[in-house]
Design a protein around this nucleic acid. Structure first.
Lengths: 138, 138
DNA sequence: GGAATAGTGCAACAGAAGTGCATTTAATGC
DNA sequence: GCATTAAATGCACTTCTGTTGCACTATTCC
């Protein structure tokens, strides 16, 4: 049993060939991926399978969904410090308007916000748009 | 010339009948509206016209677009204190997962975030998801 | 009043998200 | 091992939002 298979198994996700491939693909990326990204990377793969795989990953808590403002859902594997499903200790995301990549800034936590009375926060999403480090070099 | 016409004129938006109606509709709402919301409210209206009207409102700086994580763009009129196009003094938004409404919390500003070197922020989007005040009463 | 410009309506397209169902694959019990 | 069950996958199709092109209409400017 490989490391990836163990990871999936721990979260009771059956480690099928497809899922392992997708996991590897996501792990190799520094950026969040959209459904289309994976679809293009694996020409043989069915969109539905990818769609449901990502949903599964998210539901089981090994990946989180990111809305970067492009109206395209992106996904990223949870890093060791990522407690996205447990508490509000959420990191923020950066979307580069030049290379169109979305990056998890895992060490940057979202500061606590005081809401007006009556409002109950369940999830916080903070996306900063701008130019990423590799694009700003040029 | 009514107050609304003046507002539009100030931003060099020709105050057509349609635009005034849409402006009124948005002004009467406490929440951000999606294209479909307006479409349903005015059965006679064309989606394209609404679409372009909202775009115009946004470009001219009397409304701002909100990504609340539903992958559906919403729009809200800028309030007097809203400097969404001028500086980074951006307010945050609340999305209720129960009634599906998106609310501008204009008096709640987004705290400043220190980015890693190389990253240049141009825009910040902070959305809190949860239960809004009217839904939490029940 | 007539030319130029801006706004609107209609049609059509693109892309993403999502669903239903048949088929394949894997896990379980005997 | 083999049958039974459940899960995963592949295919087709639908829906919804966003978007563009083009013709037509209304408005402004001279």
């Amino acid at each position: 049993m490989t490391e990836i298979e163990k990871t999936l198994d721990n979260k009771s996700i059956r480690p099928t060939a497809m899922r392992i491939l997708i996991y590897k693909f996501m792990a190799g990326k520094k950026t969040a991926v959209a459904l289309t990204d994976i679809e293009n990377a694996f020409e043989k793969a069915e969109r539905t399978t990818l769609y449901r795989t990502l949903k599964t990953f998210e539901e089981k808590g090994i990946a989180h969904q990111i809305d970067d403002g492009t109206n395209i859902s992106k996904f990223a594997l949870c890093q060791p410090g990522c407690n996205c499903e447990i508490d509000q200790d959420l990191h923020l995301h950066f979307h580069c308007s030049q290379c169109d990549k979305t990056i998890c800034l895992t060490e940057h936590k979202i500061p606590h916000i005081n809401l007006p009375s009556g409002y109950i926060a369940e999830d916080v999403n903070l996306v900063i748009k701008g130019i990423c480090d590799s694009c700003s070099e040029h």
